[in-house]
Deep mutational scan, measured.
Amino acid sequence: AQASVVANQLIPINTRLTLVMMRSEVVTPVGIPAEDIPALVSMQVNRAVPLGTTLMPDMVKGYA
């Protein structure tokens, strides 16, 4: 199954992502693919992302 990017902590709005904030997990619905984690580093989220939330393309500025 495809692993997705999941928030490893609460990520406040406009925060630049770092590796420690993200983990890969097989979840439904599928979000951003886990292999994109390196590309997500330093991108900003456009909303607060609670712990355990799957990151979707529309949550990350410049990803989609």
Rank of each mutant, 00 (worst) to 15 (best):
A1R: 03
G31W: 02
I13C: 14
V41Y: 08
E25Q: 08
Q2V: 12
N8W: 05
P12L: 12
E25Y: 05
Y63C: 04
P12S: 11
P57W: 06
V30N: 09
S42P: 00
R47C: 04
P12K: 08
D36R: 15
M56W: 06
V20M: 15
V26I: 12
G62Y: 05
I37K: 09
V60L: 09
A48Q: 14
V5D: 02
G52V: 02
T15P: 01
V6K: 04
V20W: 13
K61S: 14
V41D: 04
S24G: 07
V30I: 11
E25A: 09
Q44K: 07
P12W: 04
V41S: 04
I13S: 10
Q44S: 15
P38W: 11
Q44H: 15
N46P: 03
N14Q: 12
P57S: 08
I11A: 00
M22L: 14
R47Q: 13
N46F: 07
I37N: 01
P12E: 13
N8R: 08
T54M: 03
T18R: 08
V20T: 13
R23M: 05
E35N: 10
P12D: 09
A1P: 11
Q44G: 05
P50D: 12
M22C: 03
M59S: 07
Q44L: 07
L55K: 01
M59H: 12
V6G: 00
V27E: 01
N8M: 06
L40S: 00
P33D: 04
V26C: 05
G52S: 12
T54G: 02
L10P: 15
V26A: 08
L10D: 11
A7Q: 00
L19S: 12
A34I: 08
V27C: 03
E25P: 00
M22G: 01
M43S: 09
I13Q: 12
T53N: 13
T54W: 02
A3T: 08
V6L: 07
L17P: 03
L51T: 09
I32N: 01
V6I: 14
V5H: 01
L40D: 00
I32S: 00
R23A: 09
V60W: 01
V60Y: 00
G62E: 10
Q2F: 08
E35M: 08
M59Q: 04
A1M: 12
G62K: 07
I37T: 06
V45D: 01
A7I: 06
D36K: 15
M43G: 04
N8Q: 10
V27H: 03
P50L: 14
K61N: 11
A1T: 09
V30T: 09
G52Q: 03
L10G: 10
V27L: 05
D58P: 08
S42V: 04
D36F: 10
M22P: 00
Q9I: 14
L17C: 03
T15E: 09
G52A: 07
P12V: 05
P38S: 11
V41W: 06
L55N: 01
P57N: 05
V27R: 08
R23F: 05
A64L: 12
V26L: 13
V27M: 09
M21Y: 08
T18C: 04
A64R: 15
P50W: 05
Q2W: 12
R16V: 15
I11Q: 01
V45N: 03
G31S: 02
M56G: 04
P38C: 06
A1D: 15
M22R: 00
A48H: 14
A64S: 15
L40H: 00
L51F: 13
I32Q: 00
R16P: 14
P12I: 05
T54H: 03
T15K: 05
V49I: 10
P12H: 11
L55S: 00
V20E: 13
A34L: 03
V49Y: 01
L55D: 00
M21I: 03
I32A: 01
E25M: 05
A3C: 14
K61E: 14
L51H: 13
G62C: 05
G31L: 02
M21Q: 04
A34Y: 08
T53W: 13
V45R: 00
A64M: 09
Q44R: 09
Q2E: 14
S4P: 02
P38Y: 15
N14G: 12
K61A: 12
V27N: 03
D58E: 09
D58F: 06
V20G: 13
Q44E: 15
L51P: 14
M56R: 10
M21L: 06
V5W: 02
A3K: 06
T54A: 14
T15R: 05
L19H: 12
A34S: 14
I11N: 00
K61D: 11
S42T: 12
E35Y: 10
V49K: 00
P33V: 15
V27D: 02
D58G: 13
T18I: 09
I11G: 00
V45I: 06
M21T: 03
Q9R: 12
Q9T: 13
Q44Y: 13
L40E: 00
N14H: 13
D36M: 13
Q9G: 07
V27K: 06
G31D: 00
S24Q: 14
L40N: 00
V30S: 08
G31A: 03
L51A: 14
S4K: 00
R16K: 10
E25L: 05
L40A: 00
E25F: 06
T18W: 03
L17M: 10
I37E: 03
L55H: 00
S24R: 06
Y63I: 04
N14Y: 15
M59C: 04
L17G: 02
L17Q: 00
A64Y: 03
